[in-house]
């Protein structure tokens, strides 16, 4: 597994009677990967296992070819941005990151240089000498990201790093991780806000209730789920007339017309045939189709299907 980022085999972790992660067998390549799932899905447990914070209850896990728990060699090559607050309020942003770099073993001057660079990179350059206690939630998130990337790790493990960031901040941090990924850093990011992952990467891992639901590019994951019908949303000048025609199609599973705005939701197993038929019906009946939207490859839709 020399080229692999991590490999888990029947990995499990539980907290007393509570299952955090169950029977996870997974291999990830280097690059940017998004971990998606609702709260309590096991994302944080998995990330803490990857970051070497906790040890597996069963199974094996290798990250960058190393067993992660309490492994100093891995800690030098990886950075962790936890979900928790974690920062000392009485220290300045610069002091926090510099002190954490000292823990890595960097000398005072090098630690300061790296801390300054990282804070600049996350957009906290102007606030580096302010107390963390005076930081907004978004600034704290940036400071946590700074400490995770300051030592130039091969892998950054970030647990909900976009929480508390405003839209501009989210866009900036998304761009930062994406850029880092293009430059060769591997990034493992968890979130329950699905569109954030879509903006960052197409490689996703879906968790639910401590189990792996799916893994791979969003589109491919969707294709694998052929047992789920694909949804199309239509708007037309005469929705009920169009709906009557669509119900006649044998590959259409269901047609639903919304009372309020006349929106038509169609479920079908064969999307291409449906589009061909829709073009024909629209031309023949002149029902005035005004919009057509397929959420088929959208991550939100995939997630809805999976956890429904």
């Amino acid at each position: 597994m020399s080229g692999a980022l991590l490999a888990a085999d029947q990995l499990g972790r539980w907290y007393g009677q509570v299952v955090g992660l169950s029977d996870l067998t997974l291999s990830l390549e280097r690059g940017v990967t998004g971990l998606v799932g609702p709260n309590g899905a096991g994302k944080s447990t998995f990330l803490k296992l990857v970051a070497g914070e906790i040890r597996p209850s069963r199974g094996t896990l290798e990250v960058l070819g190393l067993k992660p728990f309490a492994n100093s060699e891995l800690f030098r090559r990886a950075g962790f941005c936890p979900q928790q607050e974690a920062l000392y309020e009485d220290m300045t942003g610069l002091e926090v990151v510099r002190f954490l770099m000292r823990l890595h073993g960097f000398g005072a001057a090098e630690a300061t240089r790296r801390a300054n660079e990282a804070l600049d990179r996350v957009g906290l350059g102007d606030a580096r000498k302010r107390r963390v206690g005076g930081y907004s939630k978004g600034m704290r998130q940036r400071a946590k990201i700074a400490q995770a990337i300051a030592h130039g790790p091969e892998l950054v493990v970030a647990d909900e790093p976009f929480n508390g960031l405003d839209p501009v901040g989210r866009a900036e941090m998304t761009a930062l991780f994406a850029q880092a990924g293009r430059e060769g850093m591997s990034v493992l990011v968890s979130t329950h806000v699905l569109h954030e992952v879509e903006a960052l990467t197409h490689e996703i891992v879906l968790f639910h209730r401590g189990r792996l639901l799916a893994q791979g590019p969003v589109g491919q994951v969707r294709q694998l789920l052929s047992r789920h019908p694909r949804r199309v949303e239509l708007r037309a000048r005469e929705p009920r007339r169009l709906a009557r025609a669509l119900v006649e199609l044998d590959f259409v599973l269901s047609v639903r017309v919304a009372q309020a705005d006349g929106r038509i939701d169609v479920e079908t197993f064969e999307l291409e045939r449906f589009f061909e038929a829709l073009t024909r019906i629209a031309a023949e009946l002149r029902v005035g189709v005004t919009s057509l939207e397929s959420h088929d490859a959208n991550l939100e839709a995939v997630f809805d299907y999976l956890v429904a």
Partner: peptide
Amino acid sequence: LLYFSRPL
């Protein structure tokens, strides 16, 4: 969590 993800 910040300490134990470092060589400490």
